[in-house]
Design a protein around this nucleic acid. Structure first.
Lengths: 338, 338
DNA sequence: GTGAAAGCGCTAACAG
DNA sequence: CTGTTAGCGCTTTCAC
């Protein structure tokens, strides 16, 4: 089947391309009869307007980029569902980019967006990202950016997050209420606001219980699972080991459980665990995992909606917009009072 | 910052756009000195060539589409990693589309690709998909398509799959070897080749053990978790209930475990379970889950490589190409001999 | 109500 | 080695 463009279609109809174009876009200056005829023949010839020819004229591609550290992670994959839900009907298309937690990769990806490949960007930054100049530059070139979850607080762009401080506080408080007196915190970055805010909440909970916060109990994990295993094992093998753990991201669950297994520490008798996680199978872990579950879908959806508004040019959200959607503590066996 | 195009850049340099274009693409007809100068000023003015203007000329967007039923699923999200790994260096970009297991949605998505939005398509079809005409049509329009995992056998396009028959056989055989005599199979479709092939393998294993295959023991699950729960519960509540289950997709794990929990059937004493799954936390479930783990990353990567070859126009893979990458049975507690 | 012409930004063919 | 021209496919003035 030959690819048929508007010129070919026009020739078939004995009309000019201009007329055909107008008919297809239901312009009022075209007679109903002609429109009818055009539509019919277009369908018959299987005509599909070239998306990027229109893009070139309109200066917009109807593509948006979603930049995330990793897709094999419930939070991000569910967030994608939310993004897709917001975008679906609007005839936008979603390009996914993975940074694999690398700042260099994030930079490289964003640099490419100056080319007009996408009309806007949704981003959750890598663990390594501290400096936001690559993002500011993009904004300076009039490419709208909306942050979700992992935001850069000093970059002026709308943000959608969960209540990280409260979540960290609630998680730690829950363990304290269930009898823990020595709680460790597993972070993922020293710079990322989500990690820091969650940690600050954890610290506040300790303080509210008049417990001292020890730097030794706060580990910064990396994307390297083996290294995390070693670090956590070291922490839990100590004489004076913690009796509770707040893990700030989903993919630490496996490691924490494995370490406990290896050290023959039973959860929750020897140590209680709360983990930030969106895994629906948390309930069938051994033991079932108490989670702080983020509204991943809603975060993705809200972020996409903000971006769509930014693209609309009218009633664009202020760069100071910040939407906070609370997380939920779901209590299960891993934090049960002994 | 104003958007600078090649014309503006040329004016700045006192050169013609053509010369600038050639210099930027490192043409041999341009002097080293000029190239140098162009590159410098380009960087200084922050020039980025418009991606879709080039697309329009080259008749290719360097975008490819990945169509999957669902992204919040380890198999698919890991497969995306594989796709991305293959595509990364090649300067292609990945558009993700989710069908949510709906045929109508799959059709609508594909229809849109006649517009040239993407240069090629990687697809894993929905559960509902039986007819491949929407895909054939696209191929007829010269948009290369490569199937991965969930293929349509009667559509002529390269395919990358795992050895579904063997996997089903191995899974069932493993349960039989561990003492099961009445095994149920949870499928996801009556038409999908992966489901049918896995089921055929399961049936063959039963036959090899001189056991009868009963239709009552083969359930077709849907995307509706609550409905699956009811159906599986009904199956396991029967007087003559199965003593083993082979579940053909990852997201049935939760339901199976929950049903057993509700019915107070203990795994593996009362019933043994094997599930197709790529979840890395299978090991910390209660009990640890025996899985048939698919080479998700490799499947994604291989499929993307085939598609890239198809895009290259030279040494395009034959439509009959079929790559089979074996899955792996990982034995854990859920199938342990009592 | 319809058509001719120009241009979105880029590049290949061809001249000079 | 550099510049002119034309055209990728579409749409939007502006004529008619």
């Amino acid at each position: 089947m030959k690819k048929v463009n508007i010129k070919a279609l026009a020739k078939e109809l004995n009309l000019s391309p201009a007329t055909v174009s107008k008919a297809l876009r239901d312009s009022h200056e075209i007679s109903a009869a002609t429109k009818q005829r055009v539509l019919e023949v277009a369908k018959q010839l299987n005509y599909a307007p070239n998306a990027y020819a229109s893009s070139l004229r309109d200066r917009r591609s109807r593509n948006i980029a979603v930049i995330i550290p990793e897709v094999a992670d419930s939070f991000f994959s569910i967030a994608i569902n939310g993004i897709e839900a917001a975008i679906e009907e609007k005839d936008y298309h979603v390009l996914i980019y993975l940074t694999h937690e690398l700042y260099a990769r994030e930079q490289a990806i964003l640099k490419d967006f100056k080319s007009g490949r996408v009309d806007g960007v949704l981003i959750s930054v890598s663990r390594e990202t501290t400096d936001g100049s690559h993002i500011s530059e993009l904004i300076a070139e009039d490419v709208p950016v909306v942050f979700f979850d992992r935001v850069l607080e000093n970059v002026e762009a709308p943000k959608v997050v969960t209540d990280d401080f409260n979540s960290g506080y609630t998680g730690a408080m829950h363990l304290l209420d269930n009898g823990c007196r020595h709680i460790a915190f597993l972070g993922i970055s020293n710079s990322l606001s989500i990690s820091n805010n969650r940690m600050a909440g954890y610290q506040q909970a300790l303080k509210d219980h008049h417990l001292t916060v020890s730097p030794d109990d706060m580990i910064t994990c990396t994307p390297d699972t083996a290294a995390n295993f070693t670090a956590i094992k070291q922490l839990l093998a100590k004489e004076n080991r913690p009796d509770g753990i707040v893990a700030s991201v989903e993919n630490l669950t496996n490691t924490v459980y494995q370490v406990c297994n290896e050290l023959q520490l039973s959860i929750p008798q020897d140590i209680k665990v709360v983990c930030f996680s969106n895994l629906d199978i948390a309930a069938i872990l051994h033991p079932p995992l108490t989670t702080i579950t983020q509204p991943a879908f809603q975060i993705g959806k809200a972020a996409a909606e903000l971006l769509l508004k930014s693209l609309g040019k009218k009633d664009a959200p202020s760069p100071a917009t910040q939407i906070v959607i609370p997380s939920e503590l779901i209590i299960r066996g891993s934090s049960k009072r002994s």
